[in-house]
Design a protein around this nucleic acid. Structure first.
Lengths: 195, 195, 195, 195
DNA sequence: TCTTAAACGAGACGGTACGTCTGGTCTTGAA
DNA sequence: TTCAAGACCAGACGTACCGTCTCGTTTAAGA
């Protein structure tokens, strides 16, 4: 994929084409063979790249997948004032993210390796949650002050529920109807279950 | 060679002591070295058992862990009429289950391998959810009829939220304060976030 | 894991030092534990080499032993004109070859596996007999023409007798007196048994 | 094969039908899968017999094969006075014995295991050679006294040549023309190679 | 007739070698 | 200093066979 076949084009500088080829191959392989079916050798072969070129860039399969799967920029998720719209946007965004077929495959594997690698844990937290958590904490404070939200509600609980539910429904139960999952969760979050 | 040094006590029947030793060793190793650090050879050695005795019983590490971690009987979880108490009991039960250190280690690994092994997916679903789901569906129907619960609420959504949140907070974020997690989640489920 | 502890010195080329170490270890183990007591793992360990490095080079234990035991060059065995001297040299050479302690151990094992592996059969034939057979056939033709040898004598019979007798006496009966075996066989071949 | 399937007919006595079934299965398997392809389990299954019944009778595969392949009685081989006829009879008998397809397969395996098991070595020697060697020694003494045989000829040399040549030609080179092998060897033994 | 003792088929047991695969490190030779 | 290629060691994988052992049944021989 990268180029020629047995040649490369940059002298003593890392070739960006290698990065791109590896990440693209990773995304492709994730849906083809799954996280656990993926090997470094397999990625290298699919990317048309030598294995050392991969080890030079990432310390483990989890790090490759992490970079391949999650966009490098945290999107501007929390911004509205209207609380219903805001929660709806957060839930639909979360469900859309974890509903991507590539992410569905990647998440359980990443979670599994996170437990043994705190580095990875931190990277994933920062990439996926930290920004949103801070903003959501601030928004909740505002909403609580204005009485829009009950004071018992904490940002971490909300994020646990949104991410956990999405992961469970999409990566574990493998549900296909994203719309339904997001709608039900939004309703539940906003109103609770009591009639 | 010098082989057959030790004895066993059951003729052509599988020795329950081997099962017990393997499952106990699995639980012990889960917290000591983690799911991914565990090998079949390691389990066999820790259990004082030959590897073939393990392969005779379980087809993969995930199946061993599954049996080691989850009790063979589905507890009588859903039974009360008082909806608040019932939800509280469900949430606290779920949090207690997924908060067990052994389960915390096991869950991400199991989830990862479930995606590649539908057998495992089915086993876990039946072991953990099927019974509760049926009962909860029935209870919800009753509660909805009596107006205690809003009609939009579905059993699958509730279970996704409870299990997903517990897994995310306990296995992924590794939170230690089970009480707080359960209390917050119960409150959120019952009342929603709106003031 | 802590891996890749040691180094090797040739890039993408097979390291001749590995070949040498394996073959030397094989020769050593042959006399220490015998052919059937030798395992690929044992050879690898004794040679300080990984098992895959062995499987990369030889398809079976028999092939390793074959290469370890027999020198890669067919010596210049058949060359003299004086028939008595020539036969004496052939017999003594054969007895010396099969009398080597390493060869004594290797031969029965190799023979056993040859029956199931035609590849091995061909390799051993070419290595040990083909060259000698051709030369001996030619010499016999000369000698027959000059009346030095009876016309009934065939090269294959001579080689069967020399190799078979040496193997039987040395590898099977484990006789130690090479000199006596060679002398008796030479006498018998030259003069037959009739008085 | 032996009988019924899960029953046997003798009380606390070994069932001769089991012996017979095992030996017959061994002979059959030898030509079907070869010595090294044969397992105790395979023999037991082919004989319709449990493995312990085999271990109760023979200590190793080699011992089974030994008994399966060689007739329990040493035939009356050495008996004639006419030396040419006697040698011819010995050679043809030896070639016929080692030319049997079952024996061809068995010999290299047995030879291989003999080196590690002196018991086996002794059994085979007694079964195949001891009787013949004594008689031949005596006959040679007579023939030497009457000048029919050159005094240098020893019985062990003759037996090494006959057995070794037969094994090499038939088990190793896998020659099919028994007649030719026996005729050539007889001629060589009687007259030597000199014209 | 009843008891004892041994052989039987079946198959689990601990152990170990097999041959394959993956992980992570290193060196080559070219660019 | 990068690159592709690939050899290297370490070690886990799942399979197969080994030789031992126990089970539960069956049966002959001794009491």
């Amino acid at each position: 994929m990268a180029q020629g076949r047995t040649t490369h084009t940059l002298g003593p500088h890392q070739d960006p084409a290698v990065d791109a080829a590896v990440l693209a191959a990773t995304r492709r392989l994730l849906v083809e063979v799954g996280y656990s079916g993926m090997t470094i050798h397999g990625i290298a072969a699919a990317a048309g790249v030598g294995r050392p070129a991969i080890y030079r860039r990432w310390p483990s399969k989890a790090h490759i997948v992490h970079e391949a799967v999650f966009p490098p920029l945290t999107p501007e998720w929390v911004s509205e004032n209207q609380i219903e719209n805001e929660v709806r946007r957060l839930v639909f965004g979360t469900v859309a993210l974890f509903g991507d077929p590539v992410v569905r495959e990647a998440i359980p594997g990443l979670m599994s390796e996170m437990r043994a690698d705190p580095t990875l844990q931190k990277m994933l937290d920062e990439r996926l949650q930290a920004g949103v958590r801070d903003k959501l904490t601030q928004s909740l404070a505002d909403w609580t002050r204005t009485g829009q939200v009950r004071p018992e509600i904490k940002a971490t609980t909300l994020l646990d529920v949104m991410a956990g539910t999405a992961i469970f429904a999409l990566s574990i139960r493998n549900v296909d109807d994203l719309e339904s999952v997001a709608t039900s969760l939004t309703d539940l979050l906003l109103h609770g279950i009591l009639g």
